[in-house]
Design a protein around this nucleic acid. Structure first.
Length: 601
DNA sequence: GCCGTTTTCGGCCCGACTGTTTTCAGTCG
C-alpha cells in the first residue's frame, strides 16, 4: 500500500485547483474557499489524510462536504477529477503567466482567449509583435511591463527572502533614516511580517505618523539604502533598496497610528478574518478607522490595543496574528490567549560549542556570556567524534573536556556549567560514543549531521532509535532544514513526536535564525503530542548566544508558554525530567500529556 | 465552497495603485 499523501501535498492539490477555478472564471469566493482550505490543510498539526480516512476532515476550518469528497478522491486515485478537466482546458504555461506581476487570472484568460497565449514564451512573442495592445483594456504600457517582467533573470523562480534578523536590521536602519531625514514630528515603526517575527521576510513594511505626510514620503528616496522610490504621496511611498528589497511606507495621522499599525502588521489572513467578524457585528475595519455601520461614526485609535479592545478582543501579540485561532481565543467570552514564553523565562542554554570542536571561544568565555544573559546554567555540547567537518572530539578528548567543565564549574560563580555533548546520530540510529562515556555527561543532545537523503522510513527509524536511547536527553534541530538553503530531510514527524512523548525525550527549537528548527507549526504539534521542548542557541561563540531571541520568537509563534519549555526550569528540576533520571518503569510507559488544542492549527 | 449571538440561504475585508479609460477593471497587499 502506498504511503498516504502529506498535508503539504494535499494543500498543493487544493491550491492548484483554486488557481484553475480562478482561471476558469469561478466566483472569487469559491477560489478563496480553496485557498483557505489549502492553508488549513498545510497548517494542520495532524495527518489530514488520516483525518479524512476517519471521516473527520470537516473538523478542519474551511473544509466542508465538497472538499472532503475531493480530498478522499485525491487519496484514493491520486488526482481530483475536476482538476483533470481544468488542466486539459488551461495549459500549465498559462498558470505560469499569472505569476508575473501585473497579470492575474482575468488577463491570463483574456490573453489565452484572444491571442492564444499559452506560455510565457508565447506571451513574449505576442508582446514583441505588439499584439497585446490590440486587446481591449490593454495598451503599450502593459506590453512594456510584460516584456520587462519576462526579461528579469529570475522571472520564473520565487524571489529570495530575507532571514528575519536581516529584515529586522534593515528595517531598523530605514526607520532611523526616516526619523533623521523626515519631518520633526514623524514617528516611524517596523510593521509587517518582520514585526510578527516570521522566519523569512519578502519586503519591509514601515508605518509612520506625521502631520507632514508628503515630506516624509519624499524622504524615503533620500535614504542611503534606497536605490529608487516611487509613487510618493500623502498616503506613503514605495522603494527598493540596493540589496533589492522592496520597502513599503504607509503614513497616517497620529490619531490613526493604532489603526495603521494594526493593518500593516497583518497578516493578511488575520486582517481578513478580523474584518469579516467585525462586519457581522456591524463594524467596518480599515487602516484608517473602525466605522460603525449604524451610526456612521468613525473611530480613530492612536493605540493599537484599542483597535482590538473596541472590536471585542484582548490584545493579540503580533506573533500570533496568523488566523490560527487567535481571534476565537482572544474574543470576549473566549478561552483566552496563552501567556507566551519570553526571553526572561529562560534559565539556561543547553546547546553550545567551544574551541574543543568548531566553536570560537573557551568554556570560560561561553560561561561568562551565559551569565551575562542572566542564565543559571549552560551546557557545553561540543560535536562528537565522527562529526567530520569540524574538530572532532575523540572519546579521550571528551573525557578531558568533562574534566575542564568540572574544573570551570568549581571555579566560576553565578553559573552552573554542565558537561554535555552534541552526539551524532549515525545512519543506523546508533550514537558515536559508548554508553559508559555518555553516562558521565549531564546533558546529551543527539543530532543528525550526515546522510540527509536516506528516505523517510529509514530516517524516521534512525531518529526513533536515537530517541529510544536511554541516555539521549534531547534531539537537536530535529528536521535539519536550513531556511532558504536546504529542505528538511524526509521524516515522519508524527511518529517522531509520538516516540519523544512516549520516552520523555525532549525536542529542540534551535534558535539559529537559519534553522528555527523545530518550526512554529511543528513545535506546536510536538507540544500537542505531549513533548517537552527546549530552546537553544547552538552558539559557536559568545556573540551568537543572544540568537536565542529567534528561538523564543518561534516558540511564541507556536503559542507556547514557559511551562512547555524545559529550560525555563532550574537545572535542579530539569535534571529530574531527563529520562535517565526517571524511574525505569516510567520510561516507555508514560502517557502523552495532552494540552487543550486551540480551535485552529 | 464555506458558514451561522441576524442567517441552512445569502452573504463573503478593505483600500491603493496602475493603466486604461471617460468611470473603471484588474491586480496587489
Amino acid at each position: 500500500m502506498n504511503p498516504e499523501l502529506s498535508n503539504a501535498a494535499i494543500a498543493d492539490a487544493l491550491e492548484e485547483l483554486g488557481d484553475l477555478y480562478e482561471l476558469d472564471g469561478a466566483v472569487i469566493h469559491r477560489v478563496v474557499a480553496y485557498r483557505n482550505a489549502a492553508r488549513s490543510v498545510r497548517e494542520a498539526s495532524v495527518s489530514v489524510a488520516a483525518l479524512a480516512r476517519a471521516g473527520r476532515v470537516t473538523e478542519l476550518p474551511g473544509i466542508g462536504a465538497t472538499l472532503e469528497q475531493k480530498i478522499i478522491a485525491l487519496l484514493d486515485t491520486g488526482t481530483i477529477p475536476a482538476a483533470e478537466k481544468l488542466r486539459a482546458k488551461f495549459p500549465p504555461g498559462l498558470v505560469a503567466i499569472t505569476r508575473l506581476p501585473g497579470i492575474g487570472p482575468k488577463r491570463a484568460r483574456l490573453l489565452h482567449a484572444e491571442l492564444g497565449v499559452d506560455s510565457p514564451q508565447a506571451l513574449r512573442e505576442a508582446a514583441l509583435a505588439q499584439r497585446l495592445r490590440k486587446v481591449r483594456g490593454l495598451g503599450p504600457k502593459f506590453e512594456e511591463n510584460v516584456l520587462a517582467a519576462l526579461a528579469r533573470p529570475d522571472a520564473d523562480e520565487p524571489a529570495k527572502r530575507l532571514l528575519l534578523p536581516q529584515a529586522v536590521e534593515l528595517g531598523a536602519a530605514l526607520v532611523e533614516g526616516l526619523v533623521e531625514h523626515g519631518p520633526a514630528d514623524a514617528v516611524v515603526e517596523l510593521a509587517g511580517s518582520a514585526r510578527r517575527l516570521v522566519e523569512t521576510v519578502k519586503d519591509i513594511d514601515l508605518v509612520a505618523t506625521t502631520v507632514e505626510p508628503t515630506a516624509l514620503a519624499d524622504s524615503l528616496a533620500t535614504l542611503e539604502q534606497v536605490e529608487s522610490a516611487s509613487s510618493a504621496s500623502a498616503a506613503g511611498a514605495r522603494g527598493v533598496t540596493y540589496s533589492g528589497v522592496r520597502v513599503d511606507l504607509r503614513i497616517a495621522t497620529p490619531a490613526q497610528r493604532g489603526n495603521l499599525l494594526q493593518h500593516f502588521t497583518g497578516s493578511g489572513a488575520h486582517n481578513a478574518a478580523l474584518r469579516e467578524r467585525a462586519v457581522r457585528s456591524g463594524m467596518h475595519v480599515s487602516e484608517y478607522a473602525i466605522e460603525d455601520e449604524s451610526s456612521g461614526a468613525k473611530l480613530l485609535c492612536a493605540d493599537e490595543a484599542e483597535v482590538y479592545e473596541r472590536l471585542g478582543y484582548a490584545f493579540i501579540p503580533p506573533e500570533l496574528r496568523e488566523d490560527r485561532g487567535e481571534l476565537e481565543a482572544a474574543a470576549r467570552g473566549g478561552p483566552g490567549l496563552p501567556q507566551l514564553v519570553s526571553r526572561g523565562d529562560l534559565r539556561g542554554d543547553l546547546h553550545c560549542h567551544t574551541v574543543a570542536s568548531d566553536g570560537r571561544a573557551t568554556i570560560d568565555e561561553m560561561a561568562a556570556a551565559a551569565r551575562e544573559l542572566g542564565y543559571e546554567y549552560l551546557a557545553i555540547t561540543d560535536h562528537s567524534a565522527s562529526h567530520g567537518f569540524g574538530n572532532d572530539v575523540s572519546p579521550e578528548e571528551l573525557r578531558e573536556q568533562i574534566e575542564r567543565v568540572r574544573e570551570a564549574n568549581a571555579r566560576l560563580s553565578g553559573i552552573d556549567v554542565l558537561a554535555g555533548s552534541e552526539v551524532n546520530v549515525l545512519p543506523d540510529g546508533s550514537l558515536d560514543y559508548e554508553d559508559a562515556l555518555l553516562a558521565e555527561l549531564d546533558w546529551v543532545i543527539a543530532s543528525v549531521h550526515t546522510a540527509f537523503s536516506m528516505g523517510e522510513q529509514k530516517m524516521t527509524e534512525r531518529m526513533i532509535a536515537a530517541i529510544e536511547h536511554p541516555l539521549v536527553d534531547a534531539i537537536g534541530h530535529p528536521t535539519g532544514r536550513m531556511l532558504e538553503r536546504r529542505r528538511p530531510y524526509a521524516i515522519d514527524l508524527d511518529a517522531v513526536f509520538a516516540a519523544a512523548a512516549r520516552t520523555g525525550t525532549m525536542l529542540e527549537i534551535n534558535a539559529n535564525p537559519r534553522r528555527r528548527d523545530l518550526s512554529e507549526l511543528n513545535a506546536r504539534a510536538a507540544v500537542a503530542a505531549g513533548v517537552t521542548l527546549v530552546i537553544d542557541s547552538d552558539a559557536h561563540g559568545p556573540e551568537t548566544m543572544p540568537l536565542i531571541r529567534w528561538g523564543i520568537a518561534t516558540a511564541r509563534r507556536a503559542w507556547l508558554t514557559a511551562a512547555e519549555i524545559g529550560n525555563t526550569r532550574p537545572w535542579s528540576e530539569l535534571r529530574t525530567m531527563r529520562k535517565r533520571a526517571r524511574p525505569r518503569a516510567a520510561v516507555g510507559g508514560a502517557p502523552a500529556r495532552r494540552r487543550g488544542q486551540p480551535p485552529r492549527g
